[in-house]
Lab assay of single mutants.
Amino acid sequence: EVHFESHGEEQAMRVVKMLKKRNLTVEVKVENNKWIITAK
């Protein structure tokens, strides 16, 4: 499981795309203006 924190939507979306290319399940949450990305 991979956790990634991002402060910007643009950066977060880039990471999500990259993770999805690896056929991982990606969950995105926004907490306290931080984008929290979890990949399994």
Rank of each mutant, 00 (worst) to 15 (best):
residue 38 T to I: 13
residue 23 N to K: 09
residue 12 A to D: 01
residue 26 V to R: 00
residue 18 M to Y: 12
residue 37 I to Y: 00
residue 39 A to P: 02
residue 5 E to K: 06
residue 20 K to I: 12
residue 11 Q to M: 10
residue 8 G to P: 02
residue 1 E to G: 10
residue 1 E to D: 10
residue 21 K to S: 12
residue 6 S to G: 09
residue 21 K to V: 05
residue 39 A to W: 14
residue 10 E to Y: 11
residue 19 L to A: 01
residue 14 R to K: 10
residue 37 I to E: 00
residue 31 E to S: 06
residue 31 E to M: 10
residue 17 K to R: 11
residue 7 H to V: 10
residue 12 A to T: 05
residue 24 L to F: 15
residue 14 R to S: 07
residue 24 L to P: 04
residue 6 S to Q: 07
residue 5 E to M: 08
residue 5 E to P: 03
residue 11 Q to R: 07
residue 15 V to L: 14
residue 12 A to S: 02
residue 33 N to R: 03
residue 26 V to Y: 06
residue 36 I to V: 07
residue 30 V to T: 05
residue 30 V to I: 12
residue 26 V to E: 00
residue 23 N to G: 15
residue 20 K to F: 11
residue 21 K to W: 10
residue 28 V to D: 00
residue 38 T to V: 09
residue 1 E to Y: 12
residue 28 V to A: 01
residue 22 R to H: 14
residue 1 E to L: 13
residue 6 S to F: 15
residue 4 F to L: 08
residue 23 N to E: 04
residue 6 S to L: 15
residue 14 R to D: 05
residue 40 K to F: 13
residue 5 E to Y: 10
residue 5 E to I: 15
residue 14 R to W: 12
residue 22 R to Q: 13
residue 21 K to F: 11
residue 10 E to G: 06
residue 40 K to Y: 14
residue 9 E to R: 13
residue 1 E to N: 09
residue 38 T to R: 05
residue 9 E to P: 08
residue 25 T to E: 11
residue 23 N to W: 14
residue 23 N to D: 05
residue 31 E to Q: 09
residue 35 W to H: 01
residue 1 E to H: 12
residue 20 K to R: 12
residue 11 Q to G: 05
residue 7 H to C: 15
residue 33 N to A: 04
residue 32 N to I: 04
residue 23 N to C: 15
residue 22 R to N: 11
residue 36 I to W: 03
residue 2 V to N: 04
residue 16 V to W: 02
residue 37 I to Q: 00
residue 17 K to H: 10
residue 32 N to A: 07
residue 21 K to H: 07
residue 30 V to D: 01
residue 31 E to G: 03
residue 8 G to M: 14
residue 9 E to S: 06
residue 34 K to R: 09
residue 32 N to S: 05
residue 32 N to E: 08
residue 30 V to H: 11
residue 22 R to L: 15
residue 27 E to S: 12
residue 36 I to E: 02
residue 11 Q to V: 08
residue 30 V to E: 05
residue 32 N to W: 05
residue 39 A to N: 01
residue 28 V to T: 02
residue 29 K to C: 11
residue 3 H to L: 13
residue 21 K to N: 09
residue 39 A to Y: 09
residue 35 W to R: 00
residue 12 A to Q: 02
residue 20 K to Y: 07
residue 37 I to N: 00
residue 16 V to T: 03
residue 28 V to W: 11
residue 29 K to N: 05
residue 21 K to Y: 08
residue 9 E to C: 15
residue 35 W to L: 04
residue 26 V to A: 02
residue 36 I to A: 01
residue 30 V to W: 13
residue 17 K to G: 08
residue 36 I to T: 05
residue 11 Q to N: 08
residue 28 V to P: 00
residue 38 T to C: 09
residue 27 E to K: 07
residue 8 G to K: 12
residue 4 F to K: 03
residue 17 K to T: 09
residue 13 M to W: 07
residue 21 K to A: 12
residue 38 T to Y: 06
residue 20 K to D: 03
residue 4 F to W: 11
residue 14 R to Y: 09
residue 2 V to D: 04
residue 32 N to D: 10
residue 22 R to S: 10
residue 13 M to K: 07
residue 27 E to L: 08
residue 11 Q to H: 12
residue 7 H to Q: 10
residue 15 V to R: 02
residue 35 W to Y: 08
residue 29 K to E: 03
residue 12 A to F: 04
residue 15 V to S: 01
residue 8 G to R: 13
residue 2 V to K: 05
residue 14 R to G: 04
residue 18 M to E: 08
residue 25 T to I: 14
residue 35 W to A: 01
residue 15 V to D: 01
residue 35 W to C: 03
residue 10 E to N: 07
residue 1 E to K: 10
residue 18 M to I: 10
residue 23 N to H: 13
residue 3 H to D: 03
residue 20 K to W: 08
residue 38 T to H: 06
residue 6 S to P: 04
residue 16 V to E: 02
residue 33 N to F: 09
residue 28 V to C: 05
residue 10 E to M: 08
residue 13 M to V: 04
residue 31 E to D: 08
residue 1 E to M: 13
residue 6 S to R: 13
residue 5 E to D: 04
residue 33 N to S: 06
residue 20 K to Q: 13
residue 4 F to M: 05
residue 22 R to F: 15
residue 32 N to V: 04
residue 15 V to A: 03
residue 25 T to A: 09
residue 33 N to I: 03
residue 16 V to L: 08
residue 20 K to A: 08
residue 23 N to S: 06
residue 13 M to T: 04
residue 2 V to Y: 14
residue 37 I to F: 01
residue 32 N to P: 03
residue 19 L to G: 02
residue 2 V to I: 13
residue 27 E to R: 06
residue 16 V to M: 07
residue 15 V to F: 09
residue 8 G to L: 14
residue 12 A to L: 10
residue 33 N to C: 09
residue 37 I to H: 00
residue 37 I to W: 00
residue 34 K to Y: 06
residue 18 M to S: 06
residue 5 E to G: 05
residue 38 T to D: 04
residue 17 K to W: 12
residue 29 K to R: 13
residue 33 N to P: 01
residue 17 K to N: 11
residue 11 Q to D: 13
residue 28 V to I: 11
residue 13 M to A: 08
residue 34 K to N: 05
residue 36 I to M: 05
residue 32 N to K: 08
residue 33 N to D: 11
residue 7 H to T: 11
residue 7 H to W: 14
residue 11 Q to Y: 09
residue 30 V to F: 15
residue 9 E to Q: 11
residue 39 A to V: 15
residue 3 H to R: 14
residue 13 M to D: 04
residue 39 A to D: 01
residue 28 V to Q: 01
residue 36 I to Y: 08
residue 2 V to G: 05
residue 5 E to W: 09
residue 24 L to V: 05
residue 38 T to M: 06
residue 5 E to A: 05
residue 18 M to L: 11
residue 23 N to Q: 08
residue 27 E to H: 11
residue 33 N to V: 03
residue 9 E to N: 04
residue 31 E to A: 07
residue 33 N to K: 04
residue 28 V to S: 01
residue 27 E to N: 09
residue 2 V to H: 13
residue 27 E to F: 11
residue 8 G to F: 14
residue 14 R to V: 08
residue 14 R to L: 11
residue 39 A to Q: 02
residue 6 S to E: 12
residue 12 A to P: 01
residue 15 V to M: 12
residue 8 G to S: 15
residue 11 Q to A: 12
